[in-house]
């Protein structure tokens, strides 16, 4: 297991996500996990990144008309970003509250949309930011450092 990737080139992975493309949410998390395992990263880091990706991609699939998930791996951290075209978030504070959800019944029926997505992502990331415009779309950025103050060990 390694704490940094000094000898590894930087890697960028991109996953386009369509409206209601729930499959791609799990698939992107699965593919990134395999890449991180091949790089020999710690299980704890891989787990946190996989959760962020699954939740972030799922939010795009549920709420946006389409979007792009970008995962960038550099020697010290992993950056996860989603850019979507969609409804945006009118009240970020409310959206961050556990249990608050605007997901349609269709998503909830499949086990999604429990109002835990953003709180989960916040818990798993070292940095999280949201830039949203109502009616236009949302950009979410999350970062996980290989050596973290918030998540030691």
């Amino acid at each position: 297991m390694v704490d940094s990737l000094q000898y590894t080139p930087q890697i960028t992975l991109e996953f386009p996500i369509g409206e209601k493309d729930f499959f791609m949410a799990g698939e992107s998390a699965s593919r990134v996990k395999k890449t991180l395992q091949q790089l020999g990263l710690k299980q704890d880091i891989i787990r946190r990144v996989a959760i962020i990706i699954y939740e972030a991609a799922m939010n795009v699939a549920i709420h946006a008309s389409h979007g792009l998930l970008t995962v960038h791996i550099d020697p010290e951290s992993i950056s996860i970003q989603t850019d979507d075209k969609g409804v945006g978030i009118p009240d970020i504070e409310l959206a961050m509250r556990e249990g608050y959800s605007t997901a349609p019944y269709e998503a909830q029926e499949m086990g999604f949309g429990a109002g835990m997505g953003l709180p989960n992502m916040k818990q798993c990331s070292d940095e999280l930011s949201l830039d949203t415009k109502v009616g236009k779309g949302t950009t979410l950025k999350a970062k996980v450092y290989f050596i973290s103050k918030e998540h030691p060990g």
Binding site: M110, G111, G117, Q123
Partner: peptide, 21 residues
């Protein structure tokens, strides 16, 4: 709930659910 599975299902743990998708 998928979000709870993501947080609480650990390696070597067994997931019990009534969701079949």
């Amino acid at each position: 709930l998928i979000s709870e599975m993501l947080l609480y299902v650990k390696p070597q743990s067994l997931l019990i659910t009534s969701l079949i998708n």
